[in-house]
Design a protein around this nucleic acid. Structure first.
Lengths: 168, 168
DNA sequence: CCATGGTCGTTCGAATTTGAACCACCACCT
DNA sequence: AGGTGGTGGTTCAAATTCGAACGACCATGG
C-alpha cells in the first residue's frame, strides 16, 4: 500500500536527481550499472534485457540512445553470429563513476537512512525472496526447488572484474 | 538492488494479470482503487494526481480513458469553479470489485506469501517511513545532508478520509 | 472594484515503452 | 546434408508518460 507510494516517489526522486546531475535517465543508469558489473563490461542484448526486466525492443531503443552518447558500443558476438554485445565504453565507465555517488546519495537519503540496520537487512531478504519468486516462472508454484535455469554453458570463464564503483 | 528487480518483476506480473483478467492497466486500477476509498468516491484531479504520484497531464489522460469506458465520470466542483471532480461510477465500483480479488491474489502470491508475518510487518513499516520521507518536499538536490532545508513549517499535511472498501 | 500572483485542469509536442511482425541464424533430428 | 523449431535483435505502430505553455478562476491587497 505504502509500497506503491514509496516506489513511485522514489522513482521520481531518482529520475529528478539523475537527470539534473548528469542528464541520464534511470533506465540509462540501470543499463550502465548492469554492464559495469558484467564480466568484460559487456552483455548480450537479450541477457541484458532479461536482467533489467525490460522488453527487447525497449532495450534496443535505449542502447541506441546510449550509443549516440558514446557511453555504450555495439559489437558483434563472436560465438553467435546473430548476437549483439552491448559494451560499456571507457567514457561510459567515467560517466557512471561520475554519476554513481549522487545516485547512491539519493537512495541512501530517502530509503536506506530511514531504516534501522535490522530493517535494512530484512528489506534485502524480502526483496531477494520476492524477486526469486517471480523470476522465470510461468506459474506460481516452484520457488527454489526447480532445476537450475543457468546460463547456457558459457565457455568463457566468468571473472567479474572488480568494478571500481558500486553503482547499486 | 534486488529491490529494483523485484519491483520491476512485480509490476510486470500485475500488469499481466490485470490486463488478462479485466482489461485494465495498473494505472487504471490505482485510480479506481483510490477513488473507491475516497469520501464520496470522488476526488479533485489535482488531489488524485498527488496521491497517485503522477503528473497532472498523465492523470487527465487516464481519466479520459476511464471515462470512455464509463468507469469514471467528470463533475464540476461545486466549491471551486475551475475544479473538476473525478467520480467513480457504479459500473466503476462493480468493475473494481470484480477485478480486485485477482489483483490481490497476485500480490499475495508473489509478495506477501513469500514473507513471514514479521517480515510483512517490517515491510509495511519500511515503506511507510520511506513514503513519509519523500512526500511533500518540493525542493530537490538536498539529499546529502543539506542543512538549511528542514521539515518544519506546515503543521498540517494530511487529511485522511474515512474509507469503506480495501481493494489495495 | 480591479490588479497581482497562484492554483486548476487541459492541450501540445517530445520521449519512451511495449508487443507483434520480421528476417537471420543456431541447435537438433532424420 | 536438409528440414524444423526456436532464439536474437530490429523495426513498426500504438499507447502512455512527462513538462511546458495556456486560459480560467480563486485570493489578496490597494
Amino acid at each position: 500500500m505504502a509500497y506503491l507510494r514509496a516506489t513511485h516517489l522514489l522513482e521520481r526522486r531518482i529520475e529528478e536527481q539523475l537527470k539534473a546531475d548528469s542528464g541520464l535517465t534511470h533506465p540509462h543508469y540501470e543499463i550502465l550499472a548492469k554492464l559495469s558489473i558484467a564480466p568484460q563490461r559487456r552483455l548480450r542484448m537479450s541477457d541484458l534485457a532479461r536482467r533489467l526486466v525490460v522488453s527487447k525492443s525497449g532495450l534496443t531503443y535505449q542502447i541506441g540512445q546510449l550509443e549516440k552518447r558514446g557511453l555504450v558500443e555495439r559489437m558483434d558476438c563472436p560465438s553467435d553470429e546473430r548476437g549483439v554485445l552491448a559494451v560499456l565504453t571507457d567514457e561510459g565507465v567515467r560517466c557512471l563513476e561520475k554519476t554513481a555517488p549522487g545516485h547512491v546519495a539519493v537512495v541512501r537519503a530517502f530509503l536506506i537512512d530511514q531504516l534501522t540496520p535490522e530493517e535494512l537487512a530484512t528489506m534485502a531478504r524480502i526483496m531477494s525472496k520476492a524477486a526469486a519468486a517471480m523470476s522465470p516462472n510461468g506459474s506460481h508454484g516452484s520457488p527454489p526447488g526447480s532445476p537450475g535455469e543457468s546460463q547456457g554453458g558459457s565457455p568463457n570463464g566468468d571473472r567479474p572484474s572488480p568494478s571500481q564503483a558500486d553503482p547499486a
